[in-house]
Protein backbone atom coordinates (compact mmCIF):
# COMPACT_ATOMS: atom_id res chain seq x y z
CA UNK A 1 0.00 0.00 0.00
CA UNK A 2 1.17 3.52 -0.73
CA UNK A 3 1.65 6.04 2.10
CA UNK A 4 -1.34 8.00 0.78
CA UNK A 5 -3.56 4.91 0.84
CA UNK A 6 -2.34 4.01 4.33
CA UNK A 7 -3.13 7.49 5.61
CA UNK A 8 -6.59 7.40 4.00
CA UNK A 9 -7.35 4.05 5.65
CA UNK A 10 -6.13 5.30 9.05
CA UNK A 11 -8.13 8.52 8.68
CA UNK A 12 -11.30 6.56 7.96
CA UNK A 13 -10.60 4.10 10.77
CA UNK A 14 -10.03 7.11 13.03
CA UNK A 15 -13.53 8.35 12.22
CA UNK A 16 -14.99 4.87 12.85
CA UNK A 17 -13.19 4.67 16.18
CA UNK A 18 -14.38 8.14 17.20
CA UNK A 19 -17.95 6.94 16.56
CA UNK A 20 -17.32 3.76 18.56
CA UNK A 21 -15.66 5.68 21.38
CA UNK A 22 -18.48 8.19 21.73
CA UNK A 23 -20.83 5.32 22.48
CA UNK A 24 -19.01 4.85 25.81
CA UNK A 25 -18.82 8.45 27.14
CA UNK A 26 -19.59 7.65 30.80
CA UNK A 27 -16.87 5.03 30.87
CA UNK A 28 -14.36 7.53 29.49
CA UNK A 29 -15.29 10.15 32.07
CA UNK A 30 -14.70 7.70 34.92
CA UNK A 31 -11.50 6.42 33.32
CA UNK A 32 -10.11 9.94 32.91
CA UNK A 33 -11.17 10.94 36.39
CA UNK A 34 -9.29 7.90 37.70
CA UNK A 35 -6.20 8.73 35.69
CA UNK A 36 -5.94 12.28 37.05
CA UNK A 37 -6.32 11.10 40.64
CA UNK A 38 -2.82 9.54 40.56
CA UNK A 39 -0.88 12.79 39.85
CA UNK A 40 -3.12 14.76 42.26
CA UNK A 41 -2.49 12.29 45.10
CA UNK A 42 1.22 12.08 44.31
CA UNK A 43 1.48 15.87 44.26
CA UNK A 44 -0.31 16.21 47.60
CA UNK A 45 2.05 13.68 49.19
CA UNK A 46 5.19 15.35 47.84
CA UNK A 47 4.00 18.83 48.79
CA UNK A 48 3.31 17.56 52.31
CA UNK A 49 6.78 16.04 52.37
CA UNK A 50 8.34 19.40 51.45
CA UNK A 51 6.17 21.25 53.97
CA UNK A 52 7.33 18.89 56.70
CA UNK A 53 10.88 20.09 56.03
CA UNK A 54 12.25 17.24 53.93
CA UNK A 55 15.24 18.10 51.79
CA UNK A 56 14.53 17.36 48.13
CA UNK A 57 16.61 18.23 45.07
CA UNK A 58 13.61 20.08 43.55
CA UNK A 59 11.22 22.73 44.84
CA UNK A 60 7.43 22.92 45.14
CA UNK A 61 7.06 24.72 41.82
CA UNK A 62 8.92 22.01 39.91
CA UNK A 63 6.87 19.23 41.54
CA UNK A 64 3.54 20.99 40.98
CA UNK A 65 4.27 21.81 37.35
CA UNK A 66 5.64 18.28 36.81
CA UNK A 67 2.49 16.56 38.09
CA UNK A 68 0.06 18.92 36.34
CA UNK A 69 1.79 18.32 33.01
CA UNK A 70 2.45 14.61 33.62
CA UNK A 71 -1.25 13.74 33.39
CA UNK A 72 -1.37 15.18 29.85
CA UNK A 73 2.00 13.70 28.90
CA UNK A 74 0.88 10.30 30.14
CA UNK A 75 -2.21 10.53 27.94
CA UNK A 76 -0.26 11.57 24.84
CA UNK A 77 2.17 8.65 25.22
CA UNK A 78 -0.33 6.01 26.32
CA UNK A 79 -1.11 2.76 24.49
CA UNK A 80 -3.30 -0.16 25.51
CA UNK A 81 -3.31 -2.63 22.63
CA UNK A 82 -1.26 -5.15 24.66
CA UNK A 83 -4.58 -5.92 26.37
CA UNK A 84 -6.58 -6.91 23.30
CA UNK A 85 -3.92 -8.09 20.84
CA UNK A 86 -3.43 -11.44 22.65
CA UNK A 87 -7.18 -12.05 22.76
CA UNK A 88 -7.40 -11.37 19.01
CA UNK A 89 -4.63 -13.91 18.48
CA UNK A 90 -6.13 -16.44 20.91
CA UNK A 91 -9.68 -16.22 19.53
CA UNK A 92 -8.62 -16.09 15.89
CA UNK A 93 -10.11 -12.62 15.37
CA UNK A 94 -6.82 -11.52 13.88
CA UNK A 95 -7.73 -13.59 10.81
CA UNK A 96 -10.10 -10.95 9.46
CA UNK A 97 -7.15 -8.56 9.19
CA UNK A 98 -4.73 -11.05 7.73
CA UNK A 99 -6.86 -11.71 4.65
CA UNK A 100 -7.14 -8.01 3.78
CA UNK A 101 -4.43 -5.76 2.39
CA UNK A 102 -4.60 -3.50 5.47
CA UNK A 103 -2.62 -4.28 8.61
CA UNK A 104 -4.28 -4.70 12.00
CA UNK A 105 -1.87 -1.98 13.15
CA UNK A 106 -3.83 0.53 11.07
CA UNK A 107 -6.77 -0.20 13.33
CA UNK A 108 -4.59 -0.09 16.45
CA UNK A 109 -3.08 3.28 15.50
CA UNK A 110 -6.49 4.71 14.58
CA UNK A 111 -8.01 3.45 17.82
CA UNK A 112 -5.11 4.88 19.79
CA UNK A 113 -5.46 8.32 18.22
CA UNK A 114 -9.26 8.38 18.37
CA UNK A 115 -9.47 7.37 22.01
CA UNK A 116 -6.76 9.87 22.92
CA UNK A 117 -8.69 12.63 21.17
CA UNK A 118 -11.85 11.82 23.13
CA UNK A 119 -9.96 11.27 26.37
CA UNK A 120 -8.30 14.65 25.90
CA UNK A 121 -11.72 16.30 25.77
CA UNK A 122 -12.55 14.77 29.14
CA UNK A 123 -9.10 15.23 30.69
CA UNK A 124 -8.38 18.81 29.61
CA UNK A 125 -11.04 20.45 31.85
CA UNK A 126 -9.94 18.33 34.81
CA UNK A 127 -6.31 19.33 34.27
CA UNK A 128 -7.49 22.93 33.88
CA UNK A 129 -9.10 22.79 37.31
CA UNK A 130 -6.00 21.07 38.75
CA UNK A 131 -3.83 23.78 37.16
CA UNK A 132 -6.08 26.61 38.44
CA UNK A 133 -6.07 25.18 41.95
CA UNK A 134 -2.25 25.25 42.10
CA UNK A 135 -1.88 28.19 39.67
CA UNK A 136 0.68 30.04 41.80
CA UNK A 137 3.05 27.07 41.71
CA UNK A 138 2.65 26.08 38.07
CA UNK A 139 5.49 27.79 36.32
CA UNK A 140 6.80 26.98 32.86
CA UNK A 141 9.47 29.41 31.76
CA UNK A 142 10.68 27.51 28.75
CA UNK A 143 12.02 28.79 25.46
CA UNK A 144 10.42 27.84 22.13
CA UNK A 145 13.32 25.45 21.55
CA UNK A 146 12.51 23.64 24.80
CA UNK A 147 8.86 23.32 23.80
CA UNK A 148 9.95 21.86 20.46
CA UNK A 149 12.29 19.43 22.27
CA UNK A 150 9.50 18.54 24.70
CA UNK A 151 7.07 17.83 21.85
CA UNK A 152 9.61 15.75 19.93
CA UNK A 153 10.43 13.75 23.07
CA UNK A 154 6.75 13.09 23.70
CA UNK A 155 6.32 11.80 20.15
CA UNK A 156 9.33 9.51 20.48
CA UNK A 157 8.01 8.48 23.91
CA UNK A 158 4.67 7.59 22.32
CA UNK A 159 6.44 5.53 19.64
CA UNK A 160 8.55 3.76 22.26
CA UNK A 161 5.57 2.91 24.45
CA UNK A 162 3.39 1.90 21.50
CA UNK A 163 6.14 -0.48 20.36
CA UNK A 164 6.66 -1.86 23.85
CA UNK A 165 2.95 -2.63 24.20
CA UNK A 166 2.96 -4.27 20.75
CA UNK A 167 5.90 -6.38 21.84
CA UNK A 168 4.03 -7.47 24.97
CA UNK A 169 0.95 -8.20 22.84
CA UNK A 170 2.90 -10.48 20.50
CA UNK A 171 3.59 -12.79 23.44
CA UNK A 172 0.03 -13.97 22.71
CA UNK A 173 1.33 -15.85 19.67
CA UNK A 174 3.26 -18.23 21.91
CA UNK A 175 1.56 -18.07 25.32
CA UNK A 176 -2.04 -17.36 24.25
CA UNK A 177 -2.24 -14.80 27.05
CA UNK A 178 0.01 -11.86 27.86
CA UNK A 179 -1.68 -10.76 31.09
CA UNK A 180 1.15 -11.97 33.32
CA UNK A 181 3.75 -10.18 31.22
CA UNK A 182 1.56 -7.09 31.12
CA UNK A 183 1.06 -7.19 34.89
CA UNK A 184 4.80 -7.56 35.48
CA UNK A 185 5.59 -4.70 33.08
CA UNK A 186 2.93 -2.62 34.83
CA UNK A 187 4.55 -3.23 38.22
CA UNK A 188 7.97 -2.20 36.94
CA UNK A 189 6.48 0.80 35.17
CA UNK A 190 4.69 2.00 38.31
CA UNK A 191 8.09 2.47 39.94
CA UNK A 192 10.26 3.55 37.02
CA UNK A 193 7.90 5.67 34.95
CA UNK A 194 8.05 8.78 37.09
CA UNK A 195 4.28 8.98 37.43
CA UNK A 196 4.23 8.73 41.21
CA UNK A 197 7.84 9.41 42.15
CA UNK A 198 9.59 11.89 39.83
CA UNK A 199 12.79 10.17 38.76
CA UNK A 200 14.91 13.08 39.94
CA UNK A 201 13.90 12.15 43.52
CA UNK A 202 15.53 8.73 43.34
CA UNK A 203 18.73 8.49 45.43
CA UNK A 204 22.00 9.52 43.81
CA UNK A 205 23.33 5.95 43.70
CA UNK A 206 20.32 4.92 41.59
CA UNK A 207 20.41 7.87 39.18
CA UNK A 208 22.64 6.14 36.62
CA UNK A 209 20.24 3.24 36.27
CA UNK A 210 17.09 5.37 36.50
CA UNK A 211 18.28 7.68 33.74
CA UNK A 212 19.21 4.80 31.44
CA UNK A 213 16.14 2.57 31.88
CA UNK A 214 13.57 2.71 29.08
CA UNK A 215 10.50 3.82 31.06
CA UNK A 216 12.09 7.21 31.68
CA UNK A 217 11.73 7.85 27.98
CA UNK A 218 7.97 7.53 27.86
CA UNK A 219 7.34 11.04 29.28
CA UNK A 220 9.63 11.78 32.26
CA UNK A 221 12.53 12.73 29.98
CA UNK A 222 10.27 15.04 27.97
CA UNK A 223 9.21 16.78 31.19
CA UNK A 224 12.87 17.06 32.23
CA UNK A 225 13.67 18.69 28.89
CA UNK A 226 10.93 21.25 29.53
CA UNK A 227 11.36 21.87 33.24
CA UNK A 228 14.94 21.11 34.29
CA UNK A 229 18.24 22.68 33.35
CA UNK A 230 20.18 19.75 31.99
CA UNK A 231 23.72 19.82 30.68
CA UNK A 232 24.33 19.46 26.95
CA UNK A 233 25.81 16.00 27.59
CA UNK A 234 22.74 14.91 29.57
CA UNK A 235 20.46 16.15 26.78
CA UNK A 236 22.40 14.49 23.96
CA UNK A 237 22.67 11.19 25.86
CA UNK A 238 18.96 11.35 26.63
CA UNK A 239 17.97 12.05 23.02
CA UNK A 240 20.16 9.23 21.74
CA UNK A 241 18.81 6.77 24.33
CA UNK A 242 15.22 7.76 23.62
CA UNK A 243 15.59 7.45 19.86
CA UNK A 244 17.41 4.14 20.38
CA UNK A 245 14.65 2.73 22.60
CA UNK A 246 11.91 3.94 20.25
CA UNK A 247 13.52 2.50 17.14
CA UNK A 248 14.87 -0.59 18.90
CA UNK A 249 11.53 -1.59 20.41
CA UNK A 250 9.74 -0.84 17.14
CA UNK A 251 12.09 -3.14 15.23
CA UNK A 252 11.95 -5.83 17.92
CA UNK A 253 8.15 -5.71 17.98
CA UNK A 254 8.04 -6.00 14.18
CA UNK A 255 10.44 -8.94 14.18
CA UNK A 256 8.44 -10.75 16.90
CA UNK A 257 5.20 -9.99 15.07
CA UNK A 258 6.46 -11.54 11.85
CA UNK A 259 7.83 -14.56 13.73
CA UNK A 260 4.57 -14.86 15.62
CA UNK A 261 2.48 -14.87 12.46
CA UNK A 262 4.27 -18.05 11.43
CA UNK A 263 2.95 -19.82 14.50
CA UNK A 264 -0.51 -18.24 14.33
CA UNK A 265 -3.10 -20.99 14.41
CA UNK A 266 -6.14 -18.94 13.25
CA UNK A 267 -8.44 -20.61 15.74
CA UNK A 268 -12.12 -20.90 14.83
CA UNK A 269 -13.99 -20.98 11.57
Amino acid sequence: MTIGQTLRVIRRLFAVNIANTLAYRAEFFIYMFGSIITPIMALMIWRATLTSGASLPVDTRYLTTYFVLSSLAALVTSAWHQMWLPSMIRDGKLSIWLVRPGSVFFEIVANNLAEKAIKFLFLAPMVGIFWWFYRDDVVVKASVLRWIGFTACLLFGALFYFSLQALIGTVGFWWQDARAVDWFAGMVQAILLGGIVPLVLFPDWAQGFVNAQPYRYRFAFALDVLLRDMSRQELVTGFILQAGYAMGFAMLARWCWLRGLRSYSAVGG
Binding site: M1, Q5, R8, V9, R12, L13, V16, R100, P101, G102
Partner: peptide
Protein backbone atom coordinates in the same frame (compact mmCIF):
# COMPACT_ATOMS: atom_id res chain seq x y z
CA UNK B 1 -17.41 -0.51 2.39
CA UNK B 2 -15.65 2.85 2.18
CA UNK B 3 -12.87 1.43 4.34
CA UNK B 4 -12.51 -1.44 1.91
CA UNK B 5 -12.50 1.04 -0.95
CA UNK B 6 -9.42 2.71 0.54
CA UNK B 7 -7.82 -0.56 1.60
CA UNK B 8 -8.18 -2.16 -1.83
CA UNK B 9 -7.33 1.06 -3.66
Amino acid sequence: LLLHKDMYG
